[in-house]
Nucleic acid binder design. Sequence first.
DNA 1: TGACATCCGGAGTCGCCGCTCCGTATCGTT
DNA 2: AACGATACGGAGCGGCGACTCCGGATGTCA
Lengths: 183, 183
Amino acid sequence: MSAAGDRPLRADARRNRARVLDAADEIFATKGVGASTEEVAKRAGVGVGTVFRHFPTKEALLEAVLVARFGRLAEEARGLVGADDAGAAFFGFLAAVVDQSASKNAFAGALAQAGVDVEAALGRAGAELWEALGVLLTRAQAAGAVRPDAQVDQVVAVLVGASRAADYAPSAVPLILDGLRPR
Amino acid sequence: MSAAGDRPLRADARRNRARVLDAADEIFATKGVGASTEEVAKRAGVGVGTVFRHFPTKEALLEAVLVARFGRLAEEARGLVGADDAGAAFFGFLAAVVDQSASKNAFAGALAQAGVDVEAALGRAGAELWEALGVLLTRAQAAGAVRPDAQVDQVVAVLVGASRAADYAPSAVPLILDGLRPR
DNA sequence: TGACATCCGGAGTCGCCGCTCCGTATCGTT
DNA sequence: AACGATACGGAGCGGCGACTCCGGATGTCA
């Protein structure tokens, strides 16, 4: 991935690319991944052609949106690594993720269904999030705020589940996260 | 819903209806709700026309599949109400649901997105499940196996979340359900 | 067994959506 | 300013999938 020999984009091109990405995030989150590319284009104020030039496939667009989200999340996690209260940092981050990601599951699901290896597609973005989350987890465990047998991938699964559950009964989220606390 | 004046179906019609329902459950669970109606028809060994005669819309078909699943679940829950160990009965049921419903969320999601009031569409089936689950919950709480502040709708949300999480890391499911135990 | 209501199959219709193509506009450089 | 390189817009194409329609088959009842 990420070809090496691409010259810098023209200014308008870079601006449009960003607009499309934002629009896609918003539209897909709102109307679901079934929303048409044309709708994304309209929202971004560009033509369909432009969308497809930057993201050769709808699938690629979905992927890019996911990667962007993961990047933002990873950054947020890294910012929390130095916090005083490791337990609060960990659970605070989880809550933030759940809050921000109402529909991320749908994305990953759609990609997986399309035969994309989500793990691989996410690449660096996924690895970074994973790593930052791991640090947060380890520190919280050391502080006695999280059960010691919890693994990073379990935490991720809990996160995904909690996001989904939030759609049905937001009050269930803290209850689910309690499953991570020591008994 | 459920018109009153419909005469009994002809034998072959009833048989085909059941076949379609089974096929739909299987196909949608396997390939996702995006699977085509024709695929369902093929799986059921009937023509598309037959599918649409019994379920005038794809959405209606989805709905019917969901209702059938809920019905089965409710029956299972009712069978557990008289169990000796209320806590085991409760958690056993939850585990069974998670196990059986890998993709039920996707269904409900698809319906919700289609503008259907899932709650209303489920009707009796939903109410019955809800009620049986409530009994199970109350009894488990009385036995001290479940935290007393948990509500039925929270349990449902946990269930949905756990089902989703199971796709990512099955080992996270017991961890999530632990959130329902008293501290 | 005959006659009729009911049901079936699946080719065909219609609309939607991902994607392409190219004439035109904008950018960047000299 | 002027010219090549780059990017844009959006009409149009191809295909797919939900849904319809009707001639023929099958169940049902006397």
